[in-house]
Write a protein that binds this DNA or RNA. Structure first.
Length: 272
DNA sequence: AGATCTACCCGCACGC
DNA sequence: TGCGTGCGGGTAGATC
């Protein structure tokens, strides 16, 4: 599933393929994907807009158009493909953009979880990305900042997934970051030391950078339906490794549930 | 009022 | 084989 590194990889791939292209028209085959505005307005307003650039904010892709931002969240399984117009639609192709180079940009989403918002450039503050917290590499992401934001009783695992604090960390990397930081996922935010907070910042950056690097080497796989999952799977240390030996101390990794999210950690290395 | 919790959107994978 | 259930990001709305 796409977390920040995968979204960054998709972004880089899309820039190569569609930057500078004009969207001649759009077709929406599943209304649920288009969250705002309604389908008719979406189709009407996006016609003849040029994709001037593509940016990433947290796990959101942001297509910079002439008068609008197209904000796209892939959620669990969203993918973009470039296809020839005469190629038959795949089962889960839900939004099709016809480009000015006789190609189609197709949004494919097995689980129909993804969302798109088309917003005027001066209306950005009303839409989802306005609430995002610091990007992992933001210079303002400091121990002081985290100390304020994490001064709560919720488990650190839950707080790491809160996109309004640090944006871009998902369920998988949250486990990995806490493992590298030797912090128990159930530790209350308020109980973290300055050293813990610095560890979280450092390890977040390290692991996401490493993952982006990996993503970069397999950039073509974003057009392959099952390509993205396989990539960082091999790199994981604890997530999904129930009953397997901890890479650090060989103790068994255990799985618990923290605020409905499956959570993996080493009880020996990550004591409360 | 602010913090926290819950339901919801979906379809696939898995296990009994 | 067939059915039930867990999964998971973000948001809206409920509740503490």
């Amino acid at each position: 599933m796409p977390e920040l590194p995968e979204v960054e990889t998709v972004k880089r791939g899309l820039i190569k393929k569609v930057k500078g292209r004009k969207i001649l028209k759009a077709k929406v085959n599943w209304n649920g994907i288009v969250a705002y505005p309604d389908k008719e307005a979406f189709i009407k307003e996006i016609a003849n807009q040029t994709i001037n650039d593509i940016e990433r904010r947290g796990k959101f892709l942001m297509f910079i158009l002439d008068d609008y931002f197209l904000i796209s969240h892939l959620r669990m399984e969203g993918k973009y493909f470039i296809k020839e117009p005469n190629e038959p639609l795949s089962k889960h192709d839900h939004v099709i953009f016809t480009l000015d180079n006789n190609k189609e940009l197709r949004y494919n989403d097995t689980r129909k979880f993804g969302k798109m918002h088309l917003v005027k450039k001066d209306e950005l503050d009303k839409r989802p990305i306005s609430k995002l917290g610091k990007e992992p590499w933001d210079k303002d992401l400091t121990v002081k900042y985290l100390k304020e934001k994490l001064n709560r009783k919720l488990p650190i695992k839950t707080l790491l997934l809160d996109q309004s604090i640090i944006t871009g960390i998902g369920n998988i990397y949250a486990d990995e970051i806490l493992f590298l930081s030797k912090i128990n996922p159930e530790t209350k935010g308020v109980d973290l030391t300055n050293k813990d907070l610095q560890s979280i910042i450092d390890n977040t950056r390290t692991i996401l950078e490493k993952a982006i690097e990996k993503g970069g080497t397999t950039i073509h796989t974003y057009t392959s339906v099952d390509g993205i999952t396989g990539l960082f799977q091999q790199e994981l240390l604890v997530h999904g490794k129930k009953d397997e030996p901890c890479p650090n101390c060989k103790n068994k990794i255990i799985k618990i549930v923290v605020n409905t999210r499956g959570t993996y950690y080493c009880p020996k290395c990550q004591k409360k």
